[in-house]
Design a protein around this nucleic acid. Structure first.
Lengths: 186, 186
DNA sequence: CACGCTCCTCTACGTCTGTAGTAGTTTGTA
DNA sequence: TACAAACTACTACAGACGTAGAGGAGCGTG
């Protein structure tokens, strides 16, 4: 794997575990198990490091999206797909989620990041919008944006929010069922 | 106003504008317009500064909650109340929202913060649960948690997320209408 | 008025961070 | 094989950061 990708992955891990404040060149070197100074050579500035994080994340998300996307033709299937996605986020992508939120907050202050982050988000939302449209739902574009935002909100609440009760699968299914119903009814 | 409160408010502003990384004693002093070293005297460690932020935020939220809470007796009124709340967040509480998310992410790594943050969140959620229960909705507790999480998700998407198209009031109402319907139907 | 106490400001210091640059090493080419 | 170019690892350094503590101003009490 390209050295840059290794470093970007390490940076994402650091971001998740230590937050924006902990994201330093040296911390990335340590996380990647590379010699001190390495990340500083590949990404001269901290801003470049952040940029690399969002690009790497976007690339990985896109990659995963193109691989396995089961067809969704009913609302129930949509609920299932959403539960599967969020469940996967919570179980296996914890770090990537935390890093993404960290970057999102950072993008508030860095227009370069915002652009890249927004482009990545748009791709996913389009995909969801297509699915909603295929189900014959009105305003698929807006509703796709909202649905993604709500699922993200539920995940945030679970991982970092004030709610955060360890929620079982059934609870997750009930919650997501409610949300999806709201966006698909009528 | 108590010096500590002034400093905590300044810290919240710094947190929102410069992120966790920018939250330093000196930055807080500058934001508060006080002599350098002041915040370092009142809150000796950075951790104490963060703690002060969440406590101050919790206090302010509680205060606002006890003042104006119009009665909600129909689902439509609930939608209206949610729209008003989120609208207010987006228009006037931008900084507090950003700071809260910053603290939430930080709480992932600091159990002391988590406790305080969770307690504040629980109060709000109870209030919402009571409202849902009064409307005769099943599982009010879970649904209150989910509703708050979703509204937060929508706000996040708007302020820091990947969606972030400048949304007008009608759009906001439509989105929140969908969400609330999902949690109140059946 | 003199004294002691509390509150606040300012300074000091060791550590860490961002970033530039130097030196060494590998790779490709003649 | 000899050389040049590119790549990589490491070092250096100015600046910022967290935190502790010294000093002084203000105020109430005897």
């Amino acid at each position: 794997m390209d050295r840059r990708d290794v470093l970007a992955d390490a940076a994402i891990t650091v971001l998740a575990r230590a937050g924006s404040r902990g994201l330093t060149h040296r911390a990335v070197d340590a996380a990647a198990g590379l010699a001190e100074g390495t990340s500083s050579y590949y990404f001269r500035t901290r801003s470049a490091l952040l940029q690399a994080c969002v690009e790497r994340m976007a690339a990985r998300t896109l990659e995963e999206m193109t691989t396995g996307t089961p067809a969704v033709t009913t609302v129930d299937q949509l609920v299932g797909a959403c539960v599967a996605t969020v469940g996967h986020w919570l179980a296996k992508d914890r770090e990537r989620l935390l890093a993404r939120w960290e970057l999102a907050l950072e993008s508030t202050r860095r227009p370069e990041l915002e652009t890249a982050l927004r482009a990545a988000g748009a791709t996913i939302r389009e995909r969801v919008a297509d699915t909603l449209a295929a189900l014959g739902i009105a305003e698929p574009r807006r509703r796709a944006d909202d649905l993604v935002a709500c699922l993200d909100g539920l995940a945030f609440d679970q991982l970092a929010g004030a709610g955060r009760p360890p929620r079982d699968d059934a609870g997750l299914r009930a919650s997501i069922g409610d949300v999806v119903r709201g966006f698909t009814a009528s």
